[in-house]
Write a protein that binds this DNA or RNA. Structure first.
Lengths: 185, 185, 185, 185
DNA sequence: TATGAATGAGCGTTCATTCAT
DNA sequence: TATGAATGAACGCTCATTCAT
């Protein structure tokens, strides 16, 4: 594995365990098995490392979930697929989940940053379509997106807190309906 | 105003602007107009200052909202009252809002901490009643509470992002229905 | 007990356990059960507190030991009495012992300080007489005094380290002979 | 000279002049002509710096004195050589002398620490032999060692106090006899 | 690319001392 | 005498970042 990747993986683990400010760059390098200085070759500042990691997570979430939405699906089916994929991804990648939670409440986070990402754009397009077709409440698309995201986060947090996995289809559906009902007309 | 209060208010403002780690204790004291050392007279460590502030906010939210719930109200009315009070409180107290968001994604936060607070207990009792009476979905009360809280947060964040206030009753209702629908049967 | 005495006793215990710099004045006051400020009423600075304690110990050592030297005693008997009294005093007053040890290696200690004390003067007179009478080696009296003092300290430290007391007269004598031999002709 | 050595030398001078607690780490670095931070690169804490210095002094004392003891020497000659070497070393290295005095009355010092050092072991072996051969009094070897050490310290302190050096062989011998007599049968 | 020693500003905290009451 | 809140300089230590190699 190349050093840049080693750094990202190690940083994510440490950030998720100890937070951005509880994790010294020197420690990231040490636990990644590389030298102190090389971190700043790949990421000129700690802030840029953090931002690079944000896009890394969003990219992987995009790759993981978008392929699962099939063409002929209904709107609800598509949203369900994306919702489920997001929950699964966060459950399986605990460090990514924690990292994103922290990132979004940190001063690094700017809304514009997120808007630019194709994952968000894909979701917004889907929601816009749903609003036009009258399937969703008359509420700004961005609010609906944020609301579902928040519910994904809440769900994941709850499942983790109780050491649960998504093996019960019945229960999974009920969780999704909760999110769906909040935005469907 | 006594120095302890000055410190709490100043700390909340600075924390909400620059984060816990972006705010030096020396700066809090300076901007509060008190000496460096007195901060540690009232709050032996920075961590304890942060935790004390958490309970300060929860106390004030409790005082603000609980009085508004009147006796004869239906369950939905009570939940609406609490939901609205929470949104209003967070809109009116921007620093408290930002502070709590940061606190809950920080290592200071422990779920048990929150459970002990009477505000949370009050909400859980109400939700439990709703579940027993069959008005809510068959989902753990804590998950419902967390879900509504997340939606309150999302709502507040959205309103602030768009410089909106809750003066349009129609729109306010629509926002609440979104939360309500997600948990009502 | 008056507050001044309480402070001295508490300070001695804390100094002997944690050292001068490991003991905050605020802690001395707290554990003595008096207010923070009153300490500085009796002892304007921490340094003066420490110096006052030094004289307190020397005074008590003087009172304890001098009375035991009887008039008609030979030089060796008198020295033995003083030596034994010093060892006993230090064994019985562990805090005083530790305090003095620290004091004498600290920047507070000035030789002149000690010279002024009647206990030291008494000892020096005795030694001077021994030198004049030819019972002691031709070595400066102050050196002899310091040498015996060092051996008292070493003896006490050794007895404490091995949890011993001076109940074996035979052994006690052997210890004293060690000191005596080092200075007798 | 490398920075680690510069730090040790400067620290020893400052500690001997102003004590451990009267010497700020920042000052050590400044006067050593290195940066503040590098001190903690070599010595993670001030305590470890102090402990490292203790072993540095003991090592140098060992190197200085042991080579002077020649094979065929009698016990008394060997002890004399070590005694003289120790006195000389302490006279010539005033900062080492002061440092050790402070260290041994500080909370850093633990008896076990010292026992492990080869210098101490060498001395104890010699004393043990003297006891077996009946040349020394029937007193624990460790007590004899501590006693001689205390007399070395007393002697050095006395010589320094009076601005004397060991140029008078006659006087030097008399000083040694004082120590020797205290332990010889 | 890569190392790791080196920098130095900054931080949380301590504590002797002062002062209003 | 007595209190204890208040002061503020100082300290040990951290850490993002730089730089010589």
């Amino acid at each position: 594995m190349d050093k840049r990747t080693k750094l990202i993986i190690t940083a994510k683990r440490l950030f998720s365990e100890h937070g951005f400010y509880g994790t010294a760059t020197a420690r990231i390098a040490r636990e990644a098995g590389v030298s102190n200085g090389i971190l700043f070759h790949y990421f000129p500042t700690k802030d840029l490392l953090i931002k690079a990691m944000f896009f890394d997570v969003k990219d992987r979430l995009f790759d993981y979930s978008v392929g699962q939405v099939y063409k002929g699906a209904t709107l609800k089916e598509s949203i369900y697929t994306l919702w489920l994929a997001a929950v699964e991804f966060n459950l399986e990648n605990a460090n990514d989940f924690e990292f994103i939670r922290q990132f979004e409440t940190s001063p690094f986070y700017r809304t514009e940053t997120e808007l630019e990402h194709r994952y968000v754009q894909l979701c917004l397009e889907l929601i816009d379509k749903g609003i036009e077709e009258g399937q969703f409440k008359q509420i700004p698309a961005m609010l609906i997106f944020k609301s579902i995201s928040a519910q994904v986060e809440t769900t994941v947090r709850f499942l983790k807190m109780n050491n649960m996995v998504l093996d019960d289809v019945e229960f999974t559906h009920r969780l999704f309906e909760m999110a769906w009902d909040s935005l469907a007309k």
